[in-house]
Computed example of a mutant assay.
Amino acid sequence: MTDPIPDDDLARVLTVAHVDGATMRHVAIAGDIYTILVSGADTAGRYCLIDMHVPAGGGPPPHRHDFEEMFTLLEGELAFTFRGETTTVHAGSTVNIPANAPHSFKNLGTSDARMLCLATPAGLDAFFLEVGDIVESRTSSVPKLTPEAVAARQTKVGSLLGKYRTEMVTG
């Protein structure tokens, strides 16, 4: 016999997010703008949903983490590198990245790309908010950092990777 479904948690509420809504938090990181649509706080830590605006040349360096990520490309195309192999992904495609697998993505084109990223469990949203720069909208310009600010940001990111179960992958 299976366990019964738990009672409805009345402390949890309906979440409705609009990417350009006044309450959205837009974060510049890795040359991109990420909008936190549904945070871990909204889902009791089960997952987060992030709208990613990736301009030409944008994308994070190779990394891995112990949580699942799924990307659905809404506009444009991106080069996803997974365990050292690169695949070009076009709008309408969904990419699933298993936990612990090294990966990255890069916009090699001349047009912006846009995708949704679902991470489970949540935490990626909090990482972005802790290390990125809050900007006005998902299409804002990415702030230009001085060399000193870039070095400070890299130090900050490095100090937080363990907290967010992430590591950078080299070579």
Rank of each mutant, 00 (worst) to 15 (best):
T15V: 15
T15G: 12
H18F: 15
V19W: 15
V19E: 15
D20W: 11
D20F: 14
G21S: 15
G21W: 07
G21M: 14
A22Y: 00
T23G: 13
T23P: 00
M24W: 00
H26T: 07
H26Q: 09
V27L: 13
I29E: 05
A30E: 11
A30W: 07
G31P: 02
G31H: 01
G31Q: 09
D32T: 13
I33L: 01
Y34W: 11
T35P: 00
T35R: 00
I36S: 04
V38L: 05
S39K: 13
S39W: 01
S39A: 13
S39C: 04
G40W: 08
G40E: 04
A41F: 05
A44V: 09
A44G: 10
A44Y: 01
R46Q: 12
R46D: 07
Y47M: 14
Y47H: 10
Y47A: 13
Y47W: 10
C48R: 01
C48D: 08
L49T: 09
I50Q: 04
I50S: 03
I50A: 01
D51N: 07
M52Y: 04
P55E: 03
A56W: 00
G58I: 07
G58N: 02
G58R: 02
G59R: 03
G59I: 10
P60D: 06
P60C: 07
P61D: 08
P61W: 05
P62Q: 12
P62G: 05
H63R: 11
H65E: 09
F67L: 13
E69P: 04
